[in-house]
Each structure stands twice: as C-alpha cells, then as structure tokens.
Design a binder for these strands. Structure first.
Length: 547
DNA sequence: GAGTTTGAAACT
DNA sequence: CAGTTTCAAACTC
C-alpha cells in the first residue's frame, strides 16, 4: 500500500475531529451559514474555514451547524441501492494525480477524509492533515463557496412546476448552474441532473433538455420502466432524509440502456427542439425566465413532438387525478392543518378556563386537596371524545414540553423541512383566531404541530384510500374494455393496461361513463366545506392560500 | 477492464 | 473574464 493511502478504520479512529465517514450527507437547502458565531463575522470563506477549523479542533460551538462540510458535488454520497433503497457503501475516489487535495476529488470536495478509496498518493487523510488544511485554505481562497452545497433553494418551488408535468423533480437549484454542452443535461455528467433537479436560469448549458416539460426528460423518468417509480421514490426518500443521493438513481443497467437508447439529436422532433433551444440561445431558461414550457414556441414544439403516432404511457390514474386535483388536495390539507391548529387552540383555551374554574371551586371548598392532582383533573372531559391518537399525541408531547422549551423539538427533519414554510403561517392564523399567543409559543407549539400532523396525515390517508378504490374500479373497466376490443380484433398496442386503440379508447369509454366520477374532486372529502365550486373554481376559503 | 467522453476545476 | 489544460467520473465498447 502506498504511504498516502490510508485504511478506513485507521482514519476513522484517528480523526475524531471529523464526523464519521458514513454520515448522511445533508442537503443544506438553507445554506445558512449565518448561524456561525458572530466572531466569525468575516467573509463566508472565513466562516467556512473557521468552521473547518472549529470542527478540526473540536472546539467551542454548540451552535447548530453542519458538522461536515458539504460537497459542492452532489454526485457523491450516499449511494442508495436501487433495489431496496437502502444505503450502500459509499463510493470511493480513484484520484491519481490530485493527491485528493483538489476539488476533483469527491472525498476532498465532500470535506471528508479518504476512506478505503482507491486513490494514489492520497494526502486527504489524518497523516497529512497539515497539507490537507493548506489545500483547504487554497481552495477556499480560490472559491470561498467551494465547500458549500451546490444545490440551494429553488426559485421555482413546487408550485411553479407545471402540474401536468409527469416527471418528478426535487425542489432545488444549482447555485452555480451547469455548463453542459453535449449531454443535454440528461446524463450524470450534468450536476443538475445528477442532483435530480431541473436546470435553472443559473445554468449556461447548451441544448438543455433537463427542464420541466421536456419530452426527453419525461421519457427518461417515466418510460415504461417498472422501476422508474421506485427510483423516484428513492430520490424522494433521499431528499426527505436530507441527502441528495442521486448517485444510485440512474445507475441501474436497464435505465442506462434506456439512456443509451434515447434518440438524442436524431429525430426530426429533436432537431426541432434543438432549433428552438438555439433560438432560445443557450439555456432556454435564461431567456424565458421560467422554463421552456413557459416559452410558447418551445411548448408548441414539445406539444407537437408528442405526436399521435407515439406510444404514450398513461398511468391508470391519469384520468382520475387531474393536476388541479393535486393542487386542490394540497390546499385542503393546508386548511385541515390550520383548522387543526385552531381547534387545538380553542380546546386549550377551554381547558384553561376549566382548570381555572376548578381551582376556584376547590379553593372555595377546601384547601385539603392536593395540588398534584390539579393537572390531571384539569384534563378536559371533551378530550374523551377525541381519538386515542389524539390523546396520545397531546399527552406524550405534553411531557416533552419542557424539553421543547429548551429548544429541542421532537420532530423529524423531514417534517421540519416540510413545515418550515407553513408553520409561521399556521401559528399566525391560530393567533389571529383568538388563541392565546403566549400559550402557543411558550408551551404547546409541539402539541399543535403534532395535532396538525395527525389531522393532515389522516386526511391524506383517507384521500389515498378513496383514490385506490377509484383506481381499482377503473382498472376493472379498462380491463373489460380491452377484452371487448381484443375480441373485435382491432387490437392496438397495450401499455400498462391502457390500450391505445383507434376508437373508442377505454379512457374515452371511461370518461363518457357516468358510472363513477372521473375527477378527483368528487372524492375529496367535504370536510371544511368543499373548496371548489361546481365549475371547478376555488372558493374563497382556499383561494388565498398560497401554495 | 480499457478506452472514450464529458464537464468541473484549475490554470494561464 | 475567456480560453486552455487537467482531472476524475460517467459512459461505451
């Protein structure tokens, strides 16, 4: 073994100043380095360097900050197994000429020591910590943001992604943007693609096809590959777990074949798109402001390109769940959440009043009662009408309230991330609705969250169950329709249970059938008042909710 | 597994 | 800042 190449175990043992190698890399959507000590109120470069220094010397700071310097390269760890989604062993670099002291090296770029890598002359280890630190300094000198996450908040959040886009994209944006020229931003050469995000206006790519609404991208992510959904699920899971684990995302051989098989730049359609892209200069995003789908020309081409002769994958739910339904559901859940907060607050107020009343009664009658019973007696009777989980959530979180006050909130990072945008709104809503604000902030924020989460998840579950029922019914009808078509010997290609036959297609049959409602609207719960009117307009209860 | 392609990083 | 070189990963055969 070369002297520079170290063993993983030795590195881990000898490098207590660095986090364990297998730490899940976290997507820092906030990129919030502003939480660094005021003492580090220098440039961001210094802040980052100071952070490394702090970490390296295991010194001060109880401040919440990433212990590990995030990789600017989203292509690195963790790698998830494409089959079961479990984390695989991390990748190892193969550097030969950089001594693992430049950003070429994934490990170095990730801010971790090389650990069981196949590198040559590695200096990214404990034995060469001085050299390494020097390299870190040089790198930061060149680029103060070198070790910051490359993927930041998206300017086009979920709401801006076209609802009818079938493909899945994580919300995020490459801070620097990619500069791809030949990969159409649809290969892992592209940092955006690798991070499973759409190219943004930051990108300077040429002939980009990694935009929302891109047929090529859609084909790549949808196709008829049975595992594609699981890939997406995996990516979503990785994201929810704070990782940008796209590395294992397109790594399946079958999907590679699909990639390989894509007729990039060969079809007339592609040429048309190419021309449009060129008309849009390099990166269409830069000229259209949003995405090519916002560009009428590009949209037209995309639309035309999905011609009638092409086999189109149509999910069974395609006719049931309309884009507006998803939006609608989201709004409903927001309302449910707000309602839950309000209800919870009202209940608490009632409890307080009840308790005070009880105190007065007790004090007027006898002083012999023990104080310790007050809280238990104060538990409201009306809670008995609640569900078991209702009680549980309240009680178990009440016991945590002191811990919560200390700043520790028993909430998953995923939940936090999901709620970070909404929680303030929720609390404001609750306060404005008459709930004692101090109570919310000082005691029961966690309880409110728990209650909201419970209500939202319950509502969502109910919707999904109904959706499943609809899908089953539809599947049955589709199957029947196909059989009848087959028997009339006008058989067309069948994809996933949806026959593409001259006419009438099962979808048309289904649409024209009154047997069951097509629209998702129809089985959204009437709770809180339907949030859409008959003609599909959103009523005043939800229309001002900014999703 | 070797060779090629690709695009970020580094350099001029 | 633009052009070129270096580099290592992704990809192809």
């Amino acid at each position: 073994m070369e002297p520079g190449v170290q063993s993983n175990a030795a590195a881990a043992a000898a490098a207590p100043e660095f986090p364990p190698k297998k730490l899940v890399r976290q997507l820092d959507f906030t990129a919030n380095f502003g939480t660094l000590p005021a003492a580090a109120a220098q440039s961001q470069a210094h802040a980052t360097a100071a952070m490394q220094s702090q970490v390296a010397t295991s010194s001060r700071t109880s401040i919440s900050m990433p212990l590990k310097i995030e990789s600017p390269r989203s292509r690195s760890r963790p790698v998830y197994d494409v089959k079961d989604g479990t984390p695989k062993k991390q990748k190892q670099c193969n550097c030969k000429h950089s001594r693992c002291l430049k950003l070429y090296c994934e490990c170095f770029a990730s801010g971790v020591h090389c650990d069981g890598c196949n590198c040559v002359n590695c200096c990214n280890n404990v034995e060469n910590e001085a050299v390494r630190q020097e390299a870190v300094g040089l790198t930061l000198e060149r680029n103060p943001n070198a070790f910051r996450p490359k993927i930041g908040n998206s300017p086009h959040s979920i709401r801006d992604i076209r609802e009818d886009s079938a493909e899945f994209a994580l919300v995020g944006k490459h801070n620097k943007g990619c500069h791809c020229k030949k990969s159409n931003c649809l290969k892992k050469y592209c940092e955006c693609f690798q991070a499973n995000i759409l190219c943004s206006e930051n990108c300077k790519c040429i002939d980009c096809k990694n935009f929302d609404g891109s047929e090529e991208r859609r084909a790549l992510f949808h196709g008829d590959h049975p595992n594609n959904l699981s890939y997406m699920q995996q990516a979503a899971n990785a994201a929810l777990n704070g990782a940008i684990g796209s590395s294992g995302y397109v790594s399946s051989p079958s999907l590679k074949k699909k990639l390989k098989g894509l007729p990039f730049g060969t079809s007339a359609k592609d040429q048309a798109i190419h021309r449009v892209a060129q008309l849009n200069q390099v990166n269409p995003l830069k000229t259209s402001g949003t995405a090519p789908p916002g560009n009428p020309v590009a949209r037209a081409v995309n639309s035309a390109s999905s011609g009638s002769s092409k086999l189109v994958y149509r999910p069974l739910l395609a006719d049931i769940v309309q884009p507006e339904d998803v939006k609608e559901l989201c709004k409903l859940l927001v309302v449910v959440s707000a309602e839950a907060a309000k209800t919870f607050s009202d209940r608490k107020v009632h409890e307080e009043k009840h308790k005070q009343k009880g105190d007065q009664t007790e004090s007027s009658h006898a002083l012999s009662n023990q104080d310790g019973d007050h809280n238990k007696k104060a538990l409201p009777d009306d809670r008995s009408s609640g569900t078991t989980s209702d009680k549980m959530s309240t009680e178990e979180f009440t016991s945590d309230s002191t811990e919560m006050q200390k700043g520790s909130r028993p909430m998953s990072p995923g939940t936090l991330a999901l709620m970070c945008d909404e929680q303030d709104t929720m609390l404001m809503t609750s306060q404005n609705s008459g709930a004692p604000p101090r109570f919310l902030y000082d005691q029961s924020v966690t309880e409110v969250y728990a209650e909201q989460e419970r209500c939202v998840l319950t509502e969502f579950r109910d919707c999904l169950q109904k959706l499943i029922t609809r899908a089953k019914v539809k599947e049955k009808y589709a199957s029947m329709a196909m059989k009848s078509e087959a028997s009339s010997s006008q058989q067309g290609p069948v994809i996933n249970g949806n026959a593409r036959v001259p006419m009438p297609s099962p979808a048309e049959l289904l649409r024209s059938s009154n047997t069951f409602p097509i629209s998702f609207h129809n089985f959204l719960p009437p709770k809180l008042g339907r949030s859409t009117t008959e003609n599909g307009n959103i009523d005043s209860k939800t229309e001002n909710l900014d999703l």
